[in-house]
Design a protein around this nucleic acid. Sequence first.
DNA 1: GGAGAATACATCGGTTACGAGGTATACGTG
DNA 2: CACGTATACCTCGTAACCGATGTATTCTCC
Lengths: 177, 177
Amino acid sequence: MLELAILGFLYDAPLHGYLLRKQIAALTGHVRPVPESTLYPAIKRLEKAGLLARATEPGSVAAPRHVLTLTEEGRRELRRRLAEPAQRDITDENRWFTVLAFLRHLDDPRAQAAVLRRRLAFLEEPASFFYDGDRPLRAEELGDPFRRGILTIARATSRAELTWLRDTLASLDDTGH
Amino acid sequence: MLELAILGFLYDAPLHGYLLRKQIAALTGHVRPVPESTLYPAIKRLEKAGLLARATEPGSVAAPRHVLTLTEEGRRELRRRLAEPAQRDITDENRWFTVLAFLRHLDDPRAQAAVLRRRLAFLEEPASFFYDGDRPLRAEELGDPFRRGILTIARATSRAELTWLRDTLASLDDTGH
DNA sequence: GGAGAATACATCGGTTACGAGGTATACGTG
DNA sequence: CACGTATACCTCGTAACCGATGTATTCTCC
């Protein structure tokens, strides 16, 4: 997820680590902090894998910067990760939002639509958080107000997302002729 | 988060690992899988920390079971984790839902309300995913349909949760006299 | 000119996650 | 009686996470 965000931001423009961190923090930082001790090792991993290159520049404000640029392989890898996300990236909202944040980098509307359809299929599965045996329980059946909250919130999210997904898929189908 | 779920389920009744896994999978498995290779080491950690005890029972269906029971310290620890969740547990929806799933185990309505108020404070902060400099961008200002989706979905979630939070806080205040 | 904040990068060590693989029993079906 | 599936637990190795800590520069404000 972190790696996807790094690749996603660098796809637009080269950045140095510090600025990259600001951007990732703006995207997901309020939900999940971005410790430098997670970011810098991740950058190293991607560099080692040949997905990005670094160039040292004299710092314009402070210490020297390492400007990070995606290699051609890195650009391919981002598109690959966006076109074929792991199942976790589809089901986990945190990860899914990261995919969505960069999905525009896939140039083919049909490829974009295919990804949205995977999320649609996931949301359309009858899944709950609480069961009576095999039968999913509805919010109204729960005595516990906190568990009722979970279902209420999840249902509102799901509804909004389904509406958006169907609308967006329709307009992608128009674009993709 | 996994540890919280283990403690939470065992708080109600002793369970063996396999059944515990089923329960956790029902709660969060559709979003995030629960590999056995994560669960069993987690059980061991909690056992080593003195939070739970295991008793071997002849398996009623197959191999022998390890029935897990919370110790008194384990029960205290669950209540402590519920009463004083880490900030991550408040901001990350996955973690937050796990807290909510077991919040009823806090017996004091005022303690429950205090936790909900932390979430309320987080949701009331003006936070976005996308910025123009320092100014948060609204969904309507985004050209990218996918990023617009993120904001649309997040806004729907936030609205539903705020309504639920305020209602629930009001009724907790009644209960808590 | 001293303090504090922001910029900029990095390592270390402990913890957690998890895919791949292994072991064994019991039950139903053909 | 072989095969598949469900039950039930486990280890190993690699990767990833992240708090604490360290280093150095520049800018602002008093």
